[in-house]
C-alpha cells in the first residue's frame, strides 16, 4: 500500500481556496472571529466560510482553552470530518496552557491529542494574525505541506493513548474497538497517576507565588 499523500495540483488548489471552517468556538478566542468574518477583515474573500456541521467542514479552529469536557466533543467532531482536514490551534492556551497552566481541568498542549497544523500564538491573536495564518494555510495546502489527518491515522495509538489519559475515550471515539482496547491498557497507569495527583496538600501563603516556570 502506498503512503497517502496530501493533495497537490488542482485538487490542492481547490482545497486551499475553499476552506470550510467548523464553527466550534471553545474559549474566548471566539470573540476574535466576528470581526474576522464581517466587513472589517472579511475572510470570505479567501473562500473561508463558517459551516455548521463537522461533516461539511475542512478546517477545525480551536479558539482558546480546552477543558477535558470540551476536548471530548472536539475529538468526536474532528473524527467526523471528512479527509483532508486541517486544525488551527488558536491562542496561547492551545500552545502551552496559557493562563490555565495550573487548572485541574484544562489540557495544555493541544497537539498531543489531535494533530495541529498551525498554531497562532498570542492572548488573544489579532484578526490580522488570523488572516495571516489563513493565507499561510492556503499557500501550504496548495504545496501539499499540511498532512495532519495522515499523521493522525498513522499514529492513532499514540493520540488515542494520550486522549485516554485525560478522558473516557470509549464514548467519544468513532473506532470503538480500538478505544476499548486502549482504554483498558491505560487504566493501570491512569490509576497510578491519579493516586499521585490527589495527595492532599494545603498551600501556605509563601508557597502560592510560583518561582519561575511551572514544573
Amino acid at each position: 500500500m502506498t503512503k497517502e499523500k496530501a493533495p497537490k495540483g488542482i485538487k490542492g488548489w481547490a482545497q486551499g481556496r475553499s476552506l470550510w471552517m467548523l464553527h466550534f468556538c471553545t474559549g474566548c478566542g471566539a470573540i476574535e472571529m466576528p470581526p474576522t468574518m464581517t466587513s472589517r477583515y472579511d475572510m470570505e474573500r479567501f473562500g473561508i466560510t463558517p459551516m455548521a456541521t463537522p461533516r461539511q467542514a475542512d478546517l477545525l479552529l480551536i479558539t482558546g482553552y480546552l477543558t477535558v469536557k470540551t476536548l471530548k466533543r472536539v475529538v468526536r467532531s474532528y473524527e467526523q470530518m471528512p479527509d483532508p482536514k486541517y486544525v488551527i490551534g488558536f491562542g496561547s492556551c492551545t500552545v502551552n496552557g496559557g493562563m490555565y497552566w495550573d487548572s485541574y481541568n484544562t489540557i495544555k498542549r493541544l497537539d498531543l491529542y489531535i494533530p495541529v497544523d498551525l498554531y497562532i500564538a498570542g492572548c488573544m491573536p489579532r484578526p490580522e494574525a488570523i488572516i495571516d495564518s489563513f493565507t499561510e494555510l492556503i499557500k501550504g495546502i496548495k504545496e501539499g505541506r499540511f498532512d495532519g489527518w495522515i499523521r493522525y491515522r498513522e499514529n492513532i495509538e499514540f493520540y488515542k493513548r494520550n486522549q485516554a489519559m485525560v478522558m473516557d475515550i470509549r464514548k467519544w471515539s468513532l473506532d470503538t474497538e480500538l478505544a476499548e482496547r486502549i482504554w483498558n491498557e491505560v487504566q493501570e497507569e491512569r490509576k497510578k497517576r491519579f493516586e499521585r495527583a490527589t495527595v492532599p496538600h494545603v498551600y501556605e501563603l509563601a508557597e502560592r507565588i510560583p518561582e519561575g516556570l511551572p514544573k
Binding site: G89, D102, Y104, D111, L118, N155, N162, M165, R196, A197
Partner: peptide, 27 residues
C-alpha cells in the same frame, strides 16, 4: 492540589519526547 493534578495529567513530558520521536510536530 490543582497544580499537582495539572502537572500529573496534562504536562505529560514523557509523551512530548515520544511525540518528538514519532515526528508528530506541528508545521
Amino acid at each position: 492540589d490543582t497544580r499537582l493534578f495539572s502537572a500529573e495529567f496534562y504536562d505529560q513530558e514523557d509523551l512530548e519526547s515520544e511525540a518528538l520521536r514519532l515526528k508528530i510536530q506541528p508545521y
